[in-house]
Amino acid sequence: MIQGSSTFIHVGQIHIDHAPRAISTVLGSCVAVCLYDCSLGIGGMNHYLLPFWNGNGLQTPKFGNISIPKLIEQMILRGATSKTLEAKIFGGASMNSMAGDSMMIGEKNILVAKEILKEYKIPIIAEDIGGQNGRKIQFNLDRGKVLMKYTTRIDLTQRG
């Protein structure tokens, strides 16, 4: 059930919003970190494609190690503190299981999220990661709950 309005975010986007709005996205090997501050009723979500920015090109938030700190910074700017923030992480599926996922993009994306959140001392209170299915998620900011549905392979040919 979609209540209020939902903002759909694409790869490389970061969105912060407040209750009763919602943020949604669709993930394959990409990962989305959802941060929620229950005392303020604000939450933010990112959606990144690759784990590391490698020094080439712009530091865009399509890289985990750029996107996650930016998401945290933006939440802190709105008054959240690392003590009140809670995280939920989704995605990181291995989408090329047939060919043998030698790059392990999904796994690396998950690892980056866990490492960076650990560093900022933000607890991960829920996760649904890995596997071979894509996910569609909707982060409802009234209670900070995430609704998730698995997707079929065909849906994800164009998704991160």
């Binding site: 920015w53 530091q59 690892l111």
Partner: peptide, 27 residues
């Protein structure tokens, strides 16, 4: 292999952090 990838990924993350710090002033 999995452990190795995990170890190397942590290493890259560390190195990239230094890289990002040096770039952040510019940003």
């Amino acid at each position: 292999t999995h452990n190795e990838v995990e170890f190397l990924s942590r290493k890259i993350l560390d190195l990239n952090k230094q890289l990002i710090e040096s770039q952040s002033a510019k940003s």
